[in-house]
Design a protein around this nucleic acid. Structure first.
Length: 302
DNA sequence: CACAGAATAT
DNA sequence: GATATTCTGT
């Protein structure tokens, strides 16, 4: 247990930084490939100081003029929402992110530094939009990348995570003891080995997808594996979902237990809470869920 | 063995 | 408190 640092209580501590992407949306194209798994993204409103200039070698996806925002939609996607957080909650209750929002939400959120480190350039849209034939395949291509930010330490830590990537857990077994190298995590274990998994942050977007998937799968089929598949979020592991699901269920139970309970701030999820309002039962909205549904089926079909 | 779920740890 | 990791049953 020499791990020490780690997140630990850190959560609330100063090191709250997580995988927040750049605050500014990088150059945004209109549409992305619907098939590509949405990279774990998170947009926090936390004021984030910019990273120092990127190296000249880095492509630096973040353009200086990041004022490109497409606000035509009725709702904004990110939950963080730095500006104006007024009736947004209501909006959420109304409709989960529209399908368009749900799927295409993919930005190259890899910190420039990291990208450079890996010698990769954030792929923009390598796939023909009509390539949604098989999302499953889509995730495989060289396109896929870990966008999971690491719950690193504070701000100025440097990423040394030696290519952990997905391969990290592949070796899983690795003889059982796994904490050893992790211990020196912060130090320098260039050896390259499975490191501690960075904590993922369940941003409103992620949670939305999660809820949508769960609800869509139904009580019966809402198991981690299925959920992960439906969500189709790059880097999201079954364990991540399992953990979240566990909590989510507890939350639901509480909700059920106190329907009239005067406990307004349960807010487990900043986004939405329950499935849908009781009002309509006939008007099945064709929304995000549908999209997911389609995706799922397509995938299944494959 | 892989997975889901609960229990526990960080 | 939020997630991760471990444990246990299937």
């Amino acid at each position: 247990m020499k791990d020490d640092d780690d997140d630990g209580g850190a959560g609330s501590g100063a090191r709250g930084r997580v995988l927040e992407s750049e605050h500014g949306l990088p150059t945004r194209g209109p549409a992305h490939d619907p098939t590509a798994p949405v990279p774990l993204s998170s947009s926090s409103s936390t004021q984030r100081r910019d990273r120092p200039a990127h190296d000249p070698t880095a492509p630096a996806p973040s353009s200086s003029s990041s004022s490109i925002r497409r606000r035509d939609m009725k709702d904004d996607d990110d939950g963080g929402a730095g500006s104006g957080a007024c009736g947004r909650v209501l909006e959420w209750e109304h409709g989960l992110p529209t399908a368009e929002e749900l799927t295409p939400v993919s930005h190259p959120l890899i910190p420039p530094a990291l990208a450079a480190a890996f010698g990769i350039d954030v792929p923009r849209t390598a796939f023909p939009s009509s390539a949604f034939d098989s999302p499953a395949l889509a995730r495989k291509p060289p396109n896929t990348r870990l966008s999971l930010g690491c719950y690193g330490e504070d701000d100025d830590e440097k990423e040394e995570e030696g290519k952990s990537e997905v391969a990290a857990y592949t070796t899983g077994a690795c003889g059982g003891g796994k904490s050893e190298d992790a211990a020196s995590a912060s130090g320098a274990c260039r050896g390259g080995r499975a490191e501690k998994k960075a904590r993922i942050a369940w941003t409103p977007e992620l949670h939305n997808r999660f809820v949508a998937a769960v609800e869509h799968l139904g009580d019966k089929g809402a198991v981690p594996k299925a959920i992960v598949r439906l969500m189709n979020v790059e880097g999201l592991t079954r364990e991540n979902v399992a953990s979240h699901l566990q909590k989510y269920r507890i939350y639901l139970k509480q909700q059920a237990r106190s329907p009239a309970g005067p406990q307004p701030p349960p807010a487990y999820s900043p986004s939405d809470s329950r499935p849908q309002q009781p009002s309509d039962t006939s008007t099945r909205s064709t929304c995000d869920i549908e999209k997911l549904e389609r995706d799922k089926e397509a995938r299944k079909d494959k």
